[in-house]
């Protein structure tokens, strides 16, 4: 088991993490290139950047936007806070980084980490319940929408168990193996699922705004491409 755990923490983690970073860089580069190309082609290049920036901030910190489906929205915000803070500022994780790359940063107390972990798990369950309990969102959900909260909850549950229960070493290693592999699977899935919003969310408001700025010749070009120049309306 120990070798398996070492493999999960070593090569598997490196592979998943690098895959995530490269995938996210690709997402970001493609989106920024798309925006630049669209602006270059647009007939009207004037963008209300201030308004776009404002609405981007509003959605990055969506505390004013909780009014619609409030319980679901609050669960989502809590989920994100736990999801971002806990893994990054947990002491054992920072020690791993220190051992591997020699970098470190301040950690949060264990008790806080425990509380965050529990509320993240609760929020994941809440999100799932909100999705499946609501007729519209159940109807439009895809497989990934239902599976992702479950997969994301796995490292949190196993991490909590590993920190708190008295296990014999084999069982502890097994739990840790699930914990690490769960995280690896999440990293690897990020570029291929909606989790890509990790880097794309700050761009979407601008994308939507630029999307309305059409190329001056778009209509004519499409008409010509479809050979409809002389076709009456």
């Amino acid at each position: 088991m120990e070798q398996w755990l070492e493999w999960a923490r070593g090569p598997a983690f490196k592979f998943a993490f690098v895959l995530m970073v490269l995938g996210l860089i690709r997402h970001l580069v493609l989106t920024v290139a798309g925006i630049v190309q669209a602006l270059y082609r647009a007939g009207d290049k004037k963008i209300p950047y201030k308004m776009v920036f404002h609405s981007t901030l509003l959605w990055l910190f969506p505390f004013k936007k909780l009014n619609n489906r409030p319980w679901y929205s609050i669960a989502s915000v809590v989920f994100h806070v736990g999801l971002i803070l806990t893994p990054i500022f947990l002491l054992p994780h920072i020690e791993l980084w220190k051992r591997g790359l020699g970098i470190s940063w301040p950690s949060i107390p264990h008790l806080l980490a425990d509380i965050l972990t529990l509320i993240t798990i609760a929020a994941a369950i809440g999100l799932l319940a909100g999705r499946l309990g609501n007729r519209e969102s159940r109807r439009i959900s895809r497989a990934q929408d239902i599976l992702l909260p479950v997969i994301i909850a796995i490292p949190f549950v196993t991490g909590f168990l590993a920190m708190h229960s008295v296990w014999d070493p084999t069982a502890y290693n097994a739990v840790m193996f699930i914990h690490v592999m769960g995280a690896n699977v999440i990293f690897a899935l990020i570029p291929f699922t909606k989790l890509g919003h990790i880097v794309l969310l700050p761009t979407t408001q601008l994308v939507s705004e630029v999307g309305w700025h059409f190329p001056a010749e778009s209509g004519r070009d499409v008409t010509i491409a479809l050979k409809k120049e002389n076709v009456p309306i």
């Binding site: 679901y72 999705r131 895809r142 909606k194 890509g196 919003h197 794309l200």
Partner: peptide, 8 residues
């Protein structure tokens, strides 16, 4: 890539 199907 981002659409999350939350039905809000």
């Amino acid at each position: 890539r981002t659409s999350t199907k939350c039905a809000r």
